[in-house]
């Protein structure tokens, strides 16, 4: 009984030491500049979207319907994202832009091409094939699940 009590006290003391240390770490840790990060994300993300808009307008001006033009624009932006990843530029943009370059479709392309390049040396099956969606996988899984759920809710509400 005494030993058990001793153990509990020991655990409590360890917990309080850990908590104290956690607070110390928080006080020493360099803080993110949230404002700067938001501004950079807005500028980089905004620029990517403006480029997308320019393509969209261009395709429409060439006589495409709005839906076709949107699809072709998405394809073009994916190509650009993949291309910039391939020549080693997109990770530099990501360093500055953060979420601004992750959220647009170019970021999605980056998240697939980067592992494809990385795991090429492990072969096409267990390297590229198996690792292609390591980063994009969760986005796809939960994106698809969410869109299904929203679809069902929409159907029921109609």
């Amino acid at each position: 009984m005494v030993a058990v009590k001793g153990n509990i006290e020991q655990q409590q003391e360890q917990e309080s030491q850990r908590e104290e240390y956690r607070l110390l770490v928080e006080s020493v840790k360099p803080q993110h500049n949230v404002l700067k990060n938001c501004v950079m994300a807005f500028l980089v993300g905004g620029t990517i979207c403006v480029i997308g808009q320019l393509f969209l307008d261009f395709f429409i001006s060439q006589g495409m319907g709005e839906r076709e033009a949107a699809a072709v624009t998405a394809g073009t932006m994916v190509f650009l994202g993949a291309f910039l990843t391939g020549i080693g530029v997109y990770d530099q943009i990501g360093k500055i832009g953060g979420a601004g370059s992750i959220i647009p479709i170019t970021g999605f392309a980056n998240s697939i091409v980067a592992p494809a390049m990385e795991f090429k040396r492990e072969g096409f099956l267990f390297g590229v094939g198996a690792k292609l969606f390591t980063v994009a996988g969760p986005v796809l899984v939960y994106g698809i699940i969410t869109s299904c759920l929203v679809g069902i809710i929409y159907y029921l509400l109609q």
């Binding site: 391939g86 360093k95 953060g98 992750i102 970021g107 980056n110 980067a114 990385e118 980063v135």
Partner: peptide
């Protein structure tokens, strides 16, 4: 990097720590 974090060409921000 590839063992512990992300692919090298992945456009992610590293935290200051």
């Amino acid at each position: 990097e590839r063992q512990f974090r992300f692919p090298v060409e992945q456009g992610v921000q590293r935290p200051a720590t």
